[in-house]
Design a binder for these strands. Structure first.
Lengths: 241, 241
DNA sequence: AAGCATGTTGCTATATTAGCACCATCTATT
DNA sequence: AATAGATGGTGCTAATATAGCAACATGCTT
C-alpha cells in the first residue's frame, strides 16, 4: 500500500530503470519516453540521473544502456536474499529428461522466471532466464496470484484482459481451488502440464514448478510430491523450517 | 555527469534500494535512516514507496526486505546485458586447481564481484558472489580505475583514504603503468597475486581476473595470455569483435 | 540544403517533498 | 502493572524540486 506521501519521482525513476533493464539494448530518452508514455524532458532527466550514479551509462551515441550499478544491484540482491543460492541446488536435483524445472516470482500481472531449465541447461543460462509470461497462464503465476487477496487480484486486472480466462471471476474461482488444494496445475495450450507450489507464506515470495508434456493424474501427484520435498529442503535451509 | 535538473528523490531512493539489497537481512526504517544519515520520515516514505511497487516488501514485523521486484530487476539486468550469459562459459574454462577466476565491476571505490570461483565452486555460488572489496587492492578494481580519467579518480577518493596506497598520486602513478601495459597485477597482503584485464573500451564495463598464490613473472605472463584469449572470445560473442 | 528527429537546457508556475510534532504500538525494564 | 524508550506511521505547512513548454545544437536522411 502506498504511504501517506508516496515518492512519485522514485516510482517513475524505477519504471525507467525497469524499462532499461528489460529492453536488452541501449535506448534513447525520447524513445523511452514514448514507451512509458512519459514527457520526454522528464525521461531524459531521469535517465541522466541514473547515468550519473552509475546505474545506467551513456554510450558514445548518447543513448543509454544498463550500467555497472545495475549489475551491482543485481548481484547484491541475488546474494542478499539468498533465494537463488539456497534454492538452486535443490532445483537441480529435480532435473530430468523431458522435464522443465522453474522458479519465479509474480511481477505485476506477469510471471518472471528466476530459474528456468530442462535437464541439459547449464546453470548460468538457467539463472539468466528473466522471461516474462502472463501470470494467469503459468503455474507459478497462478500460485502466486492465489496467495493474494481476491481484491488485490481484481485491482491487478482492473480493465485488463486476463490471458486464458473469460473474466476476473473465472480466475478467482480457480484461485480458490488452488488455495484449497495447495498447489496449481496449468495447461497452457493444452500441450504442457505445469505443477507449481508456493514458497513461504505471508508473503509467498516465490514459487517453484515442474512442467512436462501432458501429465496424467498420477504423474501430477508425483510432481507435487517432488516439489513438496524440494520446498521442505529449501525452507529448512532458509531457516524457516 | 549530473543533468541540469537532477532528480534527488531518485538518487536517495536508489541509495535506500542499494542498502536494502546489500544488507542481506530485513531492516527497519529508522535503522536504515541512521545507516544512510537520512531523516527518518524520508527513509520511511521511500521504503514504503518501494514496498508499494513490489521492489521491497514489508514483513509481519513491519521491517523491510528485498521484494520480488528486486529479483525481477536483477534477473532482467543479468539477462538484458548478456554479460553473464556470454562471459561465464569462457570464465569456466579458466578454472584450475589453486586458481581463482573472477569477473567484476567498479562500484564507487569498491570492486563488486559478479563471478568469483575457484575450481570447485558451483556456478550458482560463483554468480551469487557480490562481495565488495576496496578497488585499490583488487586487480579488477585497479584495471577499472585505470580506465577512468585521473581527475575522476581524484574525485572518487576526495577526502578518503586509499587502501594500499599512501595518497592519490601514488595510485595514479600505478594506474599510468597499468594503462601502458594493458593489464593490472595486484598483490594484496603479499600472499596472492592477481592479474586482471578490462573488458570493453570506452567504457570499460567490467574486468576479468585470475588469482593464485604468489606468481612468478612467467606465471604472470601465462595468466595474461589466458585472460587475453578469454577476452577475445567474450568480445566476439558480444559482437564487439 | 532542407527537413526531421534527437539530446539537452533555461525558465517559472506548480506540485511535491522536508521535517517537525505527534500518535499508536511494541518491548524491555522497573 | 506501570513506565520508559524504541519503532512505524501520519498530518501539516513552509520550502523546495519538478513539470513541461519553448528553444538550441547536433546528427541523420532525403
Amino acid at each position: 500500500m502506498l504511504p501517506a506521501q508516496p515518492n512519485q519521482s522514485l516510482i517513475d525513476g524505477l519504471s525507467v530503470l525497469q524499462a532499461l533493464a528489460g529492453s536488452g539494448k541501449s535506448i534513447g530518452s525520447r524513445e523511452l519516453a514514448r514507451m512509458l508514455d512519459m514527457e520526454p524532458t522528464k525521461a531524459n532527466r531521469l535517465l541522466k540521473t541514473l547515468a550519473a550514479i552509475g546505474v545506467a551509462q551513456q554510450q558514445p551515441d548518447k543513448k543509454y544502456a544498463p550500467g555497472p550499478g545495475m549489475h551491482v544491484l543485481s548481484a547484491q540482491s541475488l546474494h542478499g536474499s539468498g533465494l537463488i543460492r539456497q534454492a538452486v541446488p535443490h532445483l537441480e536435483t529435480l532435473k530430468a529428461p523431458g522435464m522443465i524445472v522453474a522458479m519465479g516470482v509474480l511481477w505485476r500481472d506477469k510471471t518472471c522466471y528466476l530459474y528456468h531449465a530442462n535437464h541439459d541447461t547449464p546453470t548460468h543460462v538457467a539463472m539468466g532466464a528473466a522471461e516474462l509470461y502472463p501470470a494467469s497462464m503459468s503455474g507459478i503465476g497462478l500460485v502466486m496470484l492465489a496467495s493474494l487477496q481476491n481484491q488485490q487480484v481484481r485491482d491487478l486486472y482492473h480493465n485488463h484482459d486476463i490471458a486464458g480466462f473469460e473474466n476476473v471471476s473465472a480466475l478467482i474461482k480457480q484461485l480458490k481451488e488452488i488455495r484449497e488444494q495447495g498447489y496449481a496445475v496449468a495447461n497452457p495450450e493444452n500441450k504442457f502440464t505445469t505443477v507449481a507450489l508456493g514458497l513461504g507464506d505471508n508473503p509467498t515470495y516465490a514459487a517453484i514448478a515442474l512442467s512436462s508434456r501432458q501429465m496424467n493424474p498420477s504423474q501430477i501427484n508425483s510432481a507435487v510430491e517432488q516439489l513438496k520435498e524440494a520446498r521442505q529442503l529449501i525452507k529448512s535451509q532458509r531457516g524457516e523450517g
